[in-house]
Write a protein that binds this DNA or RNA. Structure first.
Lengths: 134, 134
DNA sequence: ATAAACGGTAAAGCGAACTTGAAGGTCAAT
DNA sequence: ATTGACCTTCAAGTTCGCTTTACCGTTTAT
C-alpha cells in the first residue's frame, strides 16, 4: 500500500504520515520501502495509525504518544502502566474542565453585570459610565 | 515608574510588557519615555495591564484584545457591544467545555475497560492479550 | 511521447504568546 | 573608577502539530 492509499484508509494526509514517521511515531516495521524507494505499508500500519488517532483524540500529545510507543517497543507496556497513564490523563482533562468552568462562571458574572447596566441605560435613557470588561 | 516596577505591580515580566507594547495593547498615553529613553509608566498603566490580564483570563486572545482596545479608542465601545462580545466568548467557552466532557467520557470508558482487564489478569494470574489503548 | 498523477526530500511557514540572546547605554553605590 | 543592576533594541528561538513550498524522480494512461 502506497502513502496516499494509507492516507485514505486512515483519514490522514500523506504529508502528515511522513511527518509522523519523522517524529518517530512509526517504528521500523511500518517504514518499509519498495524498489523505487516508495514507502510501502501493510494493514498493520492502518491499524497502528488509527490507534494513534484514537490516543490523540483522548488528549495525548504526539510527544507523549512517542514515549508510549517507545516504552511498548522496549518492555511491552504492561497493562498496569496503561491504566496509570489513562488515569493521569483523565485527571489532566478534569483539571482543564474545571479551569474552563471557572472562566465560564467569571464570564457569566461579567455578562450579568453588563446586561443589567445595559438595561438600566436603555430604560433610563441616560448613558451609565462604566469600564470595559471590569 | 520604570518597567520592572510595573512588572512587579502587574505580575508580568518586563519583556512581556515590551511585547504587549509592540503588539499594540498599550496606547500612546501608556508609552511615555523619560529623558534617558527609559519607559515611564503611571498608575493608569498598572490598571490597564491588570484589566488586560483579566480579559485574557476569561478567554480572550491578545488579538481580540487589541481589536477591543482599538474599537474602544475609536468609538468608545458601546455597552451593547461589550455584552455581545461577552456572550460570544461565553458560547465559545461552553463549546470547549463540552469537547472536554466528551474526551473525558471516552477516557473514562477506556480506563474502565483496562482496569477490568487488569483485575482479571491479576486474579487469573494469566496475562490477557490486549492492545495498548483500544 | 507526453502529460497527469503520484512518489521523494529538505526546509520554511503558521499561530499564539512569549522568552532568550546579543550587544549595547545608564545609573547608583562603593 | 568600576562593578552590578537596570534600561534599550532587534532578532531569533520556543512549543505543537502540522501544512506549504520548491524541486526533483517515477508510473500510468492516452
Amino acid at each position: 500500500m502506497k502513502i496516499h492509499a494509507l492516507a485514505q484508509r486512515t483519514g490522514l494526509t500523506a504529508p502528515t504520515i511522513r511527518f509522523y514517521e519523522q517524529e518517530g511515531l512509526l517504528d521500523e516495521r511500518h517504514v518499509r520501502r519498495s524498489e523505487n524507494n516508495y514507502r510501502d505499508y501493510s494493514e498493520a500500519t492502518v491499524e497502528h495509525l488509527l490507534t494513534v488517532k484514537k490516543i490523540q483524540a483522548v488528549g495525548f500529545t504526539l510527544a507523549e504518544l512517542k514515549q508510549v510507543i517507545r516504552e511498548d517497543e522496549a518492555s511491552g507496556l504492561p497493562l498496569s502502566r496503561v491504566v496509570e497513564l489513562l488515569r493521569l490523563k483523565l485527571e489532566e482533562i478534569e483539571r482543564k474542565k474545571q479551569e474552563l468552568e471557572q472562566v465560564g462562571a467569571h464570564l457569566t458574572l461579567m455578562l450579568a453585570k453588563k446586561s443589567a447596566l445595559l438595561e438600566a441605560e436603555q430604560r433610563g435613557k441616560t448613558a451609565v459610565p462604566y469600564r470595559i470588561f471590569t
